[in-house]
């Protein structure tokens, strides 16, 4: 089983969000970066479990600059066999998907795993794009997945329920909570990760069709109105007359 996991680097949720250059650039000063949780907790761990069960290899791929190498090594420490970094700025979802597709096309992976979304741009776009480039079925928001022979059985979240799907490999899948339990790398994993192969490849030619021009911080929330706990009629009145939600 040849498995690929797409991993991205995102600012930790607790990071202060700020912008520079006239609000056109994210200010990475003092920002703590992590592996995107959906990629490392669910996508990577389920891929590792399937490899343990069925044999094969797990490759991780990231589109990003050399400063991402430390984060990529974390993925290797969790258990991936080898890593590929496509040496380019991840300018947009389409750009990232195109770069990964150019690398993955020749490799014939059986399953390509992604997280359900990145917690910075919250787009949930790369997976569908990659599936289209690779011409595979795409199952998003998978919460459970089993593979037998060349068939995968997957549960996916839909609005107000779940759907159970059977699909032949190769396929592209995006992973949500439920797919696997988070694995914390141990000392041995961290030591071994230093010697695992991390290949750097140059990017392919690619156009950008949708780019961020400016950022803005949302208006500060006006301060909270504290109400008398004895007077719930007042809260109901405010929700009806002022907030107009009841």
């Amino acid at each position: 089983m040849k498995l690929l996991v797409c991993i991205s680097k995102t600012p930790d949720t607790t990071s202060r969000i700020a912008f520079t250059n006239d609000n056109t650039t994210f200010d990475s000063n003092g920002v703590q970066y992590i592996l995107n949780p959906y990629d490392s907790w669910y996508a990577l761990v389920r891929a590792l479990e399937l490899k343990e069960q069925l044999g094969g290899s797990v490759t991780i791929v990231n589109v990003g600059p050399s400063s991402n190498d430390a984060i990529i090594r974390k993925g290797l420490a969790i258990g991936a066999d080898n890593a590929v970094r496509i040496d380019a700025d991840p300018k947009s979802a389409l750009y990232v998907a195109h770069q990964i597709a150019e690398f993955a096309k020749a490799e014939n992976f059986d399953i390509v795993f992604l997280g359900k979304e990145t917690i910075d741009y919250n787009g949930s776009e790369v997976g569908a794009m990659l599936a289209e480039y690779l011409d595979t079925p795409y199952i998003s928001y998978a919460t459970q997945m089993d593979v037998e022979g060349t068939t995968a059985t997957i549960s996916r979240e839909i609005e107000g329920g779940t759907e159970v799907i059977e699909v032949a490999l190769p396929l592209t899948v995006s992973c949500a909570k439920g797919m696997a339990e988070q694995r914390i790398p141990n000392m041995r994993g961290i030591m071994m990760a230093k010697r695992k192969p991390l290949k750097v490849v140059p990017p392919a030619e690619s156009a950008d069709l949708s780019t961020v021009s400016t950022y803005e911080l949302p208006a500060e929330k006006s301060s909270v109105k504290m109400l008398d706990p004895e007077n719930m009629d007042e809260l109901v009145r405010l929700l009806h007359e002022e907030a107009k939600v009841l």
Binding site: L94, S124, E125, M129, E132, S140, I158
Partner: peptide
């Protein structure tokens, strides 16, 4: 969940820029 599974595919197929959400 449906729209998110389609937007990216359509972007590639129609060679179109997209904004998700």
């Amino acid at each position: 969940s449906t729209g998110k599974s389609l937007l990216g595919r359509l972007a590639v197929k129609l060679n179109a820029g997209s904004v998700a959400g």
